[in-house]
Amino acid sequence: MTSQPSIARDLPQVAEAEIRPLIDRHLSAEGPLLPMLHEIQAAFGFVPANAVPLLAEALNLTRAEVTGVISFYHDFRKAPAGRHVLKICRAEACQSMGAEALTARMLSLLGLEDHGTTADSRVTVEAVYCLGLCACAPAAMLDGQLIGRASVEGLEKALEGAA
């Protein structure tokens, strides 16, 4: 294969000195990679590309193995999300209460064609498969806040509140 320009170069980076302590904290755990990745994402809002070689070195893994883990899980981001993250549940119980129409309406109101981030980076809309609020469907989560029996009006109001 010909070598390609690194995509990583275009992605935001974080100083190694800020990443290392988050890795070191979990070194004695059994199976530490997920706790490390969660910690890194909680700190920066995404997993910076230059965390990969640090994790690989700390855990005696290849960079490919670490990248494979990051890409396997829906939660881990390679770039920051919008300032607010709106997750709308699309699983069956929420579908039975109109989650598909709710999602379509919210995307259109935000000017999005599909799940993703608005042009002004204000809101990222994501699908989630079950928040465990299946008896008060449809359910959504705006940043950390849970919303049951979600409606277009309710979600708009919550988004206004989050400015």
């Binding site: 990679l33 997920l34 883990v69 396997f72 939660d75």
Partner: peptide, 26 residues
């Protein structure tokens, strides 16, 4: 407590164990 990362298949017990070990949840 350990926290998954949004992969449904990790509810399958062997996939869960791989995930707990820090691997892809295969």
């Amino acid at each position: 407590v350990r926290v998954g990362a949004g992969a449904y298949v990790c509810g399958e017990e062997t996939s869960l164990l791989n995930s707990l070990e820090g691997k892809r949840g295969v």
